[in-house]
Design a protein around this nucleic acid. Structure first.
Length: 494
RNA sequence: GCUCCCAUCGUCUAGAGGUUAGGACCCAGGGUUUUCAACCCUGUAACCGGAGUUCAAUUCUCCGUGGGAGCACCA
């Protein structure tokens, strides 16, 4: 095998999803198996959604999981820069090559026209996708429009007939008709590349030999293959991993379950256990045991043993596995160190003192009052979640809007949290108290507790989110239909 | 709607033509224990359906069915 180089390419648009860690895990396994390199590349080409603070979270979360990389924006390497926003010139040049070679073309269609087109296609139930409106503009027309300074994108000219064969190491050969895929945008109006453009150019330039990614990418692989072909480059070997699923079988989403790596860290899971469990989602137990180390997995790894069906993320089994690591894989000295590294340390206690000091008569009052900061989950009573003069049915919708508002807080500090929650009270035209009372119960599991905003800040964004979801469920939850309607109203008012 | 992927207990899976279809989580019962965990034992529970191929199909093929994914100037 030639030099194995794999990469994980997260986009910094939110907390790190366990699915990202799951892919990174198999990337690392493959790299270690063959003495290859693991590359971290930040895909921040979406200027509207990418945030530098999420990049930090990616590094932190993946490092905590023990999935360290050999090259990346923070550690450097011979194929940098490893941040796509710093590579725009490279993409522009490559796009120009494509246009010059007749493999791509400028498109002047407005997003309005595209919206109308899409609606028509949905109505007429015809094939969805770009209709090739600008595909055959003459050189004069293009020059003219360019001279006018019209906004435009660069689109890839896809074959209009024939079959594309995608070779997948896990699944064999997959046949996809070119007619099925439209002329994908390569360079956006803002001059930034889309995923499809950037991924191909970077994977080639960074000499990536194997691409392990989620199953959701299978359908767009022909676009990538066409690009490799146009450049005359050798494509990497593709391996599409099955998806992680919610208990109801849909693609794992944060709507009902904790999906961020940070949540698992904060809830007290061990990185070894989480890695082990994630491996089990696509790979059978090594030997007789469900419990195995990363090294054992590398040793045993065989792509033919990968399971292709989507796997439901079963928190109960994760809990059991994690328990085994805690009691079988650690001396009490190590366990004590784990606790300290986690949250049982002076720094964490010190953060609580400012608002705990005035609530104590003896030192013995301290621990009971801060227990909820350490708990995996709390158990709020329905009656405590409903403020006086409010009906129980009113609470889940409010909690849902609180979740949305809190999701948007970038700097997770008292101030941002407070502003978000005051916004929620305003939205419902409720006294702020009617928002904070249920939240206190949701976060602490008690009627009363330390100041809400500070507590939420200390609990962390992901843990806060999960406790609010749990609280909603205590009150019977919120139907999908109601949630959709609520979301419309919520978005409209802001 | 179109296309693709997938299909063994509720969940994660072993199985690669002939097995009492095995294990793990969960659940139930029991044992051990001052209690609770942990631990040990036992039990409940599965090959989506129909055609082929074959002496023989959970296993191979095809067609259904079911589930999932994709169809953006998001990745």
């Amino acid at each position: 095998m030639t030099d194995v180089r794999v990469r994980i390419a997260p986009s910094p648009t939110g907390p790190v999803h366990v699915g990202t860690a799951y892919q990174a895990l198999f990337d690392l396994v493959l790299a270690k198996k063959h003495g290859g390199k693991f590359v971290m590349r930040i895909e921040d080409t979406d200027q509207t959604r990418s945030r530098p603070e999420y990049e930090e979270q990616i590094f932190k979360a993946l490092r905590w999981m023990g999935l360290d990389w050999d090259e990346g924006p923070d550690v450097g390497g011979p194929y940098g820069p490893y941040r796509q926003s710093e590579r725009t010139e490279i993409y522009r040049e490559h796009a120009k090559q494509l246009v010059d070679g007749g493999h791509a073309y400028p498109c002047f269609c407005t997003s309005e026209r595209l919206d109308v087109l899409r609606k028509e296609q949905m109505q007429n139930k015809t094939k969805l996708g770009y209709d090739g409106h600008c595909r055959d503009l003459s050189a004069e027309e293009v020059a003219e429009k360019l001279a006018e300074g019209l906004d435009h994108v660069i689109r890839l000219k896809m074959p209009q007939e024939g079959t594309c064969i995608v070779k997948d190491r896990f699944r064999g050969e997959i046949e996809l008709d070119y007619a099925q895929v439209d002329d994908q945008v390569l360079i956006k109006t803002d001059g930034f590349p889309t995923y499809h453009m950037a991924v191909v150019v970077d994977d080639h330039l960074m000499k990536i030999s194997h691409v392990i990614r989620g199953e959701e990418w299978i359908m767009s692989t022909p676009k990538h293959l066409v690009l490799y072909e146009a450049y005359g480059w050798e494509p990497p070997e593709y391996m599409h991993l099955s998806l992680l699923l919610n208990p109801d079988g849909s693609k794992m989403s944060k709507r009902r379950n904790p999906t961020s790596v940070e949540y698992y860290r904060r809830a007290g899971y061990s990185p070894q256990a989480l890695r082990n469990y994630l491996a089990l989602m696509a790979y059978p137990p090594v030997g007789e045991e469900d419990m195995f180390s990363f090294e054992q997995l590398v040793e045993d790894f065989d792509p033919d043993k990968i399971n292709l069906g989507g796997s439901i993320f079963d928190m109960e089994k994760l809990n059991w596995l994690n328990g085994r690591y805690l009691r079988e894989d650690r001396s009490s000295e190590q366990l004590l160190k784990d606790l300290k590294d986690w949250l049982v340390n002076d720094e964490h206690f010190a953060q609580m003192l400012p608002f705990l000091q005035q609530r104590m008569e003896t030192l013995g009052d301290f621990m009971p009052q801060v227990a909820f900061f350490f708990a995996r989950k709390v158990d709020p009573q329905a009656e405590d979640l409903v403020p006086k003069k409010r009906q129980a049915e009113e609470i889940p919708p409010m909690l849902q809007t609180a979740i949305w508002a809190l999701d948007e807080v970038l700097d997770w500090q008292k101030e941002g949290i407070e502003a978000a929650l005051r916004g929620v009270a305003e939205y419902w035209e409720w006294p702020v108290r009617d928002v904070t009372v249920p939240l206190i119960a949701a976060l602490t599991g008690e009627k009363v507790g330390p100041p809400l905003f500070e507590s939420a800040a200390l609990l962390g964004q992901d843990m806060t989110r999960m406790r609010l979801i749990d609280a909603m469920n205590v009150l019977g939850g919120l139907s999908k239909k109601k949630a959709a309607k609520l979301e419309k109203g919520w978005k409209a008012k802001r």
